[in-house]
């Protein structure tokens, strides 16, 4: 059974095509890196899969059901710069947002929700900062709060938008450990990723994207110099050593 089935997704922004006819299927328990140049539509793809932006066409199936039926199976880690970190809220409250479906409309969080949030914070090494206002955290710590919030969602599929961008070594380690745990529990992870040097270390599958899906498959097969040139338009000569 496929965890995620993407068929013919097209997205336009201001009448400019951003994504054209993207189709691929993702098996459960895989770690996929979404790779492509700036403006290739990597973030848009994740947002289109989540239904955050409207699609011109195409369909997303999550464990063989339409997205609307299985939305609760998807967890999301947005880019860090997409929210106002000056917002009057502490780390624990941010993580509690991931528990929203369990808490429910109009209801207040109960003791077990708070315990759950604290467990998630502990898993990313942030329990000591639970009461901190979020603007008083470093960039890496903020990223870990977002990871804890995704953990709190207890999803089967995780979509992460550039989680490694500008984080410290401790956070990088935390993300890698989390991805390993998820994979071991047969969860599926898709990550928008920038750093070509680390692709082979982090991911077992790669999606090469440049408005179209250039190729999708195992890192070993897809992450080749030839395919990268197709994706980046011949500007990858400096990355020779990074490829397999």
């Amino acid at each position: 059974m496929h965890a995620l089935e993407i068929s013919n997704i097209s997205v336009s922004y201001n009448k400019q095509p951003v994504l054209e006819n993207i189709s691929f299927t993702v098996a459960p328990g895989t770690l996929t890196g979404i790779i492509g140049p700036n403006g290739a539509g990597k973030s848009s793809l994740i947002k289109a899969i989540l239904g955050l932006i409207s699609k011109r066409s195409g369909e997303v199936k999550v464990y063989q059901k339409p997205l609307s039926k299985h939305k609760h199976l998807i967890g999301y880690v947005p880019q860090r710069n997409e929210v106002d970190w000056d917002f009057p809220i502490n780390a624990r409250d941010v993580v509690l947002m991931g528990r929203y479906r369990k808490i429910g409309f109009f209801k207040k969080s109960k003791k077990q929700d708070i315990e759950w949030a604290d467990q998630c914070l502990a898993k990313v090494g942030m329990l000591d900062y639970a009461e901190r206002q979020i603007s008083q955290l470093s960039g890496g710590q903020q990223q870990r709060i977002f990871l804890a919030r995704a953990l709190a969602q207890d999803a089967s599929i995780y979509l992460m938008d550039e989680p490694f961008a500008g984080v410290d070594a401790a956070t990088e380690k935390a993300i890698i450990q989390l991805m390993k745990d998820w994979k071991a529990n047969d969860k599926t992870v898709l990550v928008v990723h920038h750093d070509l040097q680390t692709v082979t270390d982090y991911f077992d599958h790669v999606l090469l994207l440049n408005k179209q899906c250039i190729q999708y498959g195992t890192t070993h097969h897809v992450f080749t110099h030839e395919n990268l040139e197709k994706t980046f338009g011949g500007r990858v000569s400096f990355l020779n050593q990074a490829t397999v």
Partner: peptide, 22 residues
């Protein structure tokens, strides 16, 4: 007061809130 928690979520992180099905 009824929508307090929901307002907090959609203002802090509207994309995440939408992803959660709000």
């Amino acid at each position: 007061m009824l929508f307090f928690k929901e307002f907090k979520m959609i203002i802090f992180d509207p994309n995440f809130a939408k992803g959660m099905g709000l």
